[in-house]
Simulated assay, not measured.
Amino acid sequence: MGFFKSNKSKIEEPKVLLTVRSHSCPITAFVEQDNRTAYFYLQGDHEDFGVKSCWIRNLSEAPQEIEEKLMEQGVAPMLTREFCKFPEGQEALNEDNLEIIWLEEGDGAALLENGEILCVIPSWSGSEGFHGYARDCIGTGYFAWELSEENEMRKRVADTAAFFEAWTKEPNPFGLQQPEILNYYDEIFGQSDKYFAIDEPDGIPKGLYVLEGSEKCVFATVAVSLRPQPKVEMYYENPAQANRIELGTILKSGLTNEQVNNVASLISGITAIPWEYITFLAEGHTVEFQTNISEKYKYAVLTSKLKVLPKMSLTGFNNTNVCFLWIVPVSEREWEVMKESGSQAILGKLDDIGEEIFNLDREEVV
């Protein structure tokens, strides 16, 4: 065991008290505590997420200044006195009293002690000097900010707990949402021919509606919107405008069973992107979409803006807003233009060709 000297005592190696994996994202949450302080961490599998940390409490008297030398040695610092609600320190955490609740997006989490929130690391942690919110912090400390009674995160944690509790009841959220969405699609497009379960290994259910009509083949996802996407709140003033999505695509009829299955598999993969890569899909974003129908059109733009596309109006679980995005195949040349000049440079031209966007034998618009 290695030790570092402080002004008052030796610093013990930190002990991990609790570890919990995210239900949706490749992130692990854990609590560490040594004999001086306790911290809450989120560690992503991908380098771009890295490690996020939030101070929980000091276990002994708080220092007057930041312990920079200890930080340089990789030691978790105590929070300075001016930001501590309990400057003389608090009792060590007992792992039996702790619980980690992941927020619905899966990229943020809260630590609770006997049911009371100790701290929260939301998705925007790690930017502009912000680490997270802590109950025992006062003001905007170096390693945590105060978790006030009015803080929105308190409601977020309560809503998340209620959402996961709903999955223990019958019908669960999927059982409620699936028939509503399928009935809506049947009304808009017609009675479906096929339905694919596109559940992920984490067990969260979702599906895919398929209608092979005389002129068009329609694919539309079912209940992807049960989970809000990660990171949206970092880019949207009103995250509810974009955080819950359903996806669809329309292609010219005449597809073989193999081609239908191939497209279904591609859409299934796209629905996993936000949580697998801790990102989000929104209007104008592009994705890979390499089908066995066409070698030419192997990318796609996500949009609801084209005049020829059906205007969808879905309501999600608990009356949440749902953004429906159509997957419109584009060529590599069209994709390159969008990368350089923005999606609108191509969307306007796609709007001009109308229903030809459903035809993977169409001429390029560049």
Rank of each mutant, 00 (worst) to 15 (best):
N7A: 14
I11R: 07
E13M: 13
L18Q: 07
C25M: 05
P26V: 06
P26R: 03
I27K: 01
F30P: 05
E32S: 11
Q33A: 03
Q33V: 02
D34P: 04
Y39H: 03
Y41H: 13
Y41I: 05
L42W: 03
H46F: 10
D48S: 05
N58G: 11
M71E: 08
Q73H: 14
P77E: 10
F83I: 10
C84P: 09
K85D: 12
E88C: 06
E95S: 13
L98Y: 09
E99H: 08
G108K: 13
G108H: 09
A110R: 06
L111R: 10
G115L: 13
V120F: 12
V120A: 07
P122R: 02
W124F: 15
G126F: 04
G126Q: 09
F130S: 03
H131F: 12
R135E: 09
R135T: 07
C137P: 08
G141T: 13
G141I: 14
F143K: 08
A144E: 06
E149M: 12
E152W: 03
V157D: 10
D159G: 09
T168A: 08
G175E: 13
L176K: 13
Q178F: 07
E180R: 14
L182F: 08
Y184N: 04
E187N: 12
F189Y: 12
G190R: 06
D193F: 02
K194T: 08
A197I: 04
D199S: 10
D202C: 05
K206D: 05
Y209C: 03
Y209P: 01
V210N: 00
C217K: 02
F219M: 06
L226I: 07
K231H: 14
Y235W: 14
E237S: 15
E246G: 02
E246R: 03
L247V: 07
L247I: 04
S253Q: 05
S253W: 00
E258I: 07
N262W: 07
V263P: 12
I267Q: 14
I267L: 15
Y277F: 14
A282E: 11
E283V: 03
V287W: 10
E288L: 14
E288H: 10
F289P: 04
I293N: 05
I293D: 05
E295Y: 06
K296Q: 13
Y297M: 04
A300M: 06
V308I: 15
K311P: 01
M312C: 07
T315M: 13
N319A: 09
F324T: 02
F324N: 00
F324G: 00
V330Y: 11
V330D: 10
M338Q: 00
K339P: 00
Q344P: 00
G348D: 11
G348C: 03
G348M: 04
D351L: 02
E355Y: 09
F358Q: 04
E363P: 01
